[in-house]
């Protein structure tokens, strides 16, 4: 597959900075992101059931982020990605690591126990990584997961009892949608013909 991603200079700079700070794509957690998520939890423990339900949803979201990180790792290690595509995969994986860390911090803040990641082998099996033979296959898997994650975040918004957590879910959905849009462009997929195509 010869598709390439043309990165805006700001993204290239961000990728380069991450490499400088984090080696091979290691997460560089924004303190602001954690403060944003963890700070909003201050007044949330008024009802244990309410908090428990919100924690449960956050932990499902955390599971999604673990899986996304693993999927990009599988893609990066496949040696199937061209350099510019690999750069974007590393950037998107870094976003998911920031999501993961922020979600885990919030779960802890609410008195919960963040769900752990599974082993890479388990993710590889569940995602049918053995069927990935090309860069296009990697990107198709990533696009499917990103679109699914965007829809998942949108679908849990009505269930959050805390409006700030609902807002965060919306922001996470926006990140996943941005990822999907970039991947769909590389894959030359048609953009949705109609508006309001997500969660629909």
């Amino acid at each position: 597959m010869s598709n390439t991603i043309i990165l805006p200079s700001s993204i290239n700079q961000a990728v380069s900075r991450r490499r400088l700070l984090g080696g091979s794509g290691q997460a560089v957690l924004s303190a602001g992101a954690v403060a944003l998520l963890a700070g909003c939890a201050g007044g949330m423990a008024s009802s244990s059931n309410t908090a428990a339900n919100d924690v449960a949803i956050l932990n499902v979201a955390l599971g999604l982020e673990h899986e996304a990180i693993a999927a990009y790792q599988l893609g990066a290690e496949s040696k199937l990605l061209d350099k510019p595509v690999l750069d974007v995969a590393v950037l998107f994986q870094a976003h998911h690591k920031e999501h993961r860390d922020a979600l885990a911090a919030t779960v802890r803040k609410l008195g919960g126990m963040p769900v752990d990641a599974k082993g890479m082998g388990e993710y590889a099996t569940a995602l049918n990584a053995g069927a990935i033979k090309s860069q296009g296959d990697v990107l198709m898997l990533a696009a499917r997961l990103e679109r699914g994650a965007a829809n998942a975040y949108l679908g849990v918004i009505p269930s959050f009892k805390d409006a700030e957590l609902a807002k965060i879910a919306g922001r996470l959905a926006a990140d996943e949608t941005m990822h999907w849009t970039a991947l769909a462009g590389v894959l030359k997929q048609n953009l949705p013909a109609k508006a309001l195509s997500f969660a629909a």
Binding site: L64, G148, N151, A199
Partner: peptide, 16 residues
Amino acid sequence: EQRCTGCHSLDANRVG
């Protein structure tokens, strides 16, 4: 496909 595959597959356990 649109709504459920973020967490579920038909034949593999994932987040769900």
